Simulated scan of single mutants.
Amino acid sequence: MTKVAINGAKGKMGLALIDSINLNKNVNFGGGFDKGDSLDMALDDFDVLIDFTRPEATLSALSSCLSSSKAMVIGTTGFSDNELETINQASNKIPIVFAPNMSIGVNLTLKILETSAKVIGPDSSIEIIESHHRFKVDSPSGTAIKMGEVVANALGRDLSKCAIYGREGIEEPRDLNTIGFSSIRGGDVVGEHTVIFFMEGERVEITHKASSRMIYANGAVRAAHWLHNKPNGLYSMQDVLDL
């Protein structure tokens, strides 16, 4: 039985994770931590830590997990390039599942996007539109960026060089090699992502809509159980789901 602890246990996502653990027969709840709590005092109480907080809190928890060789599932988004490298380096010493979205449906969508981009992407204008609740602080969402990376990689492009984040004013006609992003924030939207491939005379829209945080929680708990006793390394939800 895998003992799973939660960082950020008092937040909306943290509470959903605890509910998911209690409903999962393969795991036990190994403790919850929030601002001001000392993770180092309870490192013997869990096998895997799940973290959906903020980059600074996640990196602090990562340091504690490194010191005690504990596995970690990271669903936090908004990391800088240097912070991403810190996570990558840490995976040489502990097993980590790191994914911007733990939803099974989203990860299946990523696989569909890869196939779609290879078939129709070179001849289309590609736009990614994402919507979230008004409290989400980073944009585009980590999931939208991951979708862009999947599409760009399938087309042999570098997303950092072809991404367009919003438009304003008078521009040249759209470059087919770019990938556009639009972010919407408002209300209590859990998360909606649409990738549109615009072609001459037709378009293909691939959409994933989330109506409950439990889809992310259930995926993260599944990842935590899968990760227990895995070799050191950096894993994705594609690995967890064998996609």
Rank of each mutant, 00 (worst) to 15 (best):
M1N: 09
M1W: 02
K3R: 15
K3A: 13
K12H: 08
G14N: 02
A16K: 03
A16M: 07
N22W: 02
G32I: 05
D34N: 13
L43K: 08
D45G: 04
V48K: 03
T58M: 06
A61R: 00
A61M: 03
S64R: 02
C65A: 13
V73I: 09
D81S: 08
D81W: 06
E83P: 01
N88F: 07
N88S: 14
N88G: 07
K93A: 11
F98K: 08
F98L: 07
P100I: 01
N107L: 05
K111G: 10
I112W: 00
L113K: 07
G121M: 05
P122F: 10
S125C: 05
S125R: 12
I126N: 05
E130N: 14
V137Y: 06
T143P: 03
I145N: 04
K146T: 09
E149V: 14
V151E: 07
A154H: 04
L155E: 03
D158T: 11
S160E: 14
I164P: 00
G166K: 03
E172D: 11
S182L: 12
S183A: 15
R185E: 09
G187L: 14
V190F: 11
G191Y: 10
H193G: 06
T194Y: 09
T194Q: 12
R203A: 12
E205S: 15
T207F: 01
H208S: 12
A210R: 09
A210W: 02
S211C: 06
R213Y: 13
Y216A: 04
N218Q: 14
L227W: 05
N229G: 03
N229L: 10
N232K: 15
G233R: 06
G233E: 11
Y235Q: 04
Y235K: 10
Y235H: 07
L243P: 00
